[in-house]
Design a protein around this nucleic acid. Structure first.
Lengths: 291, 291
DNA sequence: CCATCTTTGTGCACACGTTCACAAACGCAT
DNA sequence: ATGCGTTTGTGAACGTGTGCACAAAGATGG
């Protein structure tokens, strides 16, 4: 089990998941697929208010997207609208559900029942979308045996059996980063072909296995970037304007940096980084929590 | 405080956050910004192993991206590499940190201390990246007063004061979906200009406020879509091939659908949807949990 | 100081995604 | 039936992102 491996793509904003596959088996663009759940949510809300039809304009507003984009997205699914009227809510709910594969049952295992694992186990959005938590797993004997969301936490050793007997094809990893790849390997080996990874780790998987990653830290950092921009251009300018300069000047600067070594950088950084972590610098996350 | 509102863009894969702003103030593409945290994580790991330099090839592998893309990304920051050698790890860590605004302190408030709120409060990746949890807030008296991750949970009414006195500019919403917009409004009103939303709701905010959304349900649905594709083309074909046909045939089908009404669709769906929810269909989430 | 080897930085072509804008299609009133 | 207003579906232009491939720049050894 190690032939044809390939690291999954990136994390959030970019394509992610379904690595190299264009995924347009019969045509639906990846960007559209990513928006279908959004539409579905908005439509479900309308459905519950017994709204019979919606225009692309209304639905787009509810989903927070451009109406032209929405229409084009729907056009990939087929022509489910009626000109001059709009879209039949119930019918569209069904079509999108079917396209996303939500009309069938998806057993899911959650590995790593820490804070986040608990949160996910209690997540109400699962059952209503065809997802069923088949089992909660953990390697820590202290956690095994307890229960979360009415389900017992079982030991990792039962993983293979559970995946096989319940035909689980989707696994959720909420372990500390150090255990993620190992858990991933076991999941794949057992037969799981789709993985949702909350650990801040780049997972390597064989071809044919999809990985999607959710990383809170990344989201916050992106927010910080934009926030910084809003707060007027750089309040503190780290160092040398040399680095923006082209040619030999830059090269010299580079050489100096290598000579100076880690000392300079370490001093310039917020927390201690050069030596040993002061307290809880998290060697890529404090091993206590994923996400 | 209600002029010039605008719903944030989409959710995951697309652009999201920074709604209409091209965000290339001085040039850095949004896609690149989204990858910087990835590079930073890989670099931090190398730094802790005291690796002095990396080539774009090595770093790209560690971050799970194409090396050419990585080099192009770095080229937007400036020329921080040395040809024939690679990049100085420590120096690059610093440069990226600075670019992302991680060299300064970012106080953050978390609103909604349920399962997920707890998980986030315990998240180790905060402190090490310049994020500091300024306060945990909740509206439920039963939760207020308890503590999470060593911090006391305070009442929502203290929000305004906390935001002002501690100069909080980033808020995290982990409330049930019904409360999200309301909480969002209060955060914005109090002065928060960046929001990370875990509730499955499309938030409407004034211009100048960034919203990023993390939605577990959406990720799973995207996985299900690809999983379905892998399991051979549609095992059960919902109904009519008519819908793929163009022209009057389709129109007739549409008319029939409207006539038939919700009954057909409801019957075809997984859970009960037409009438009242059977048990926990989650009117857009069971109100118990966000994420 | 020159030759050779390594690795960056980037021009270019292409793929993908977004948005505009409009004709075709439909409902409805007359 | 005919005309009018509405809304879809989509062709086409545009912008963004990706990846190849290579010249330029530096390191290294003689």
């Amino acid at each position: 089990m190690a032939i044809g491996r390939s690291p999954q793509s990136s994390s959030q904003t970019p394509d992610q998941g379904a690595a190299r596959r264009p995924s347009r088996a019969r045509g639906i663009p990846e960007a559209t697929v990513a928006r279908l759940p959004l539409y579905l949510r908005a439509l479900t809300a309308l459905s519950e208010r017994s709204v019979p039809t919606v225009s692309s304009e209304e639905l787009a507003a509810a989903a927070g997207v451009n109406s032209a984009k929405l229409r084009k997205d729907f056009s990939y699914l087929g022509s489910y609208g009626t000109r001059g009227v709009g879209y039949d809510v119930e019918y569209l709910v069904y079509q999108i559900s079917r396209e996303l594969g939500l009309t069938q049952d998806w057993p899911v295992v959650i590995v790593g029942i820490g804070n986040l694992g608990h949160a996910l186990a209690n997540y109400g959005g699962f059952a209503s979308r065809g997802f069923r938590v088949a089992a909660l797993l953990d390697a820590d004997p202290a956690v095994v045996g307890s229960s979360a969301a009415g389900l017992p936490v079982r030991h990792m050793d039962e993983l293979e059996e559970i995946v096989e007997t319940q035909a689980v094809s989707i696994g959720v990893i909420t372990t500390p980063p150090g255990a993620a790849q190992q858990v991933c390997d076991r999941l794949v080996e057992a037969g799981v072909t789709s993985i949702l990874n909350f650990a801040p780790t780049v997972l390597t998987v064989p071809d044919g296995v999809d990985v999607r990653k959710v990383d809170l830290s990344i989201e916050l950092q992106i927010l910080a970037f934009h926030e910084q921009r809003k707060a007027g251009e750089e309040p503190d300018r780290g160092d040398s304007v040399l680095d923006r300069a082209p040619g030999p000047v830059r090269a010299a600067a580079a050489k100096l940096r290598r000579a100076a070594g880690a000392a300079t950088a370490a001093k310039a950084e917020p927390a201690g980084k050069g030596g040993k972590p002061p307290k809880g610098t998290d060697g890529e996350l404090s091993a206590v929590m994923p996400a």
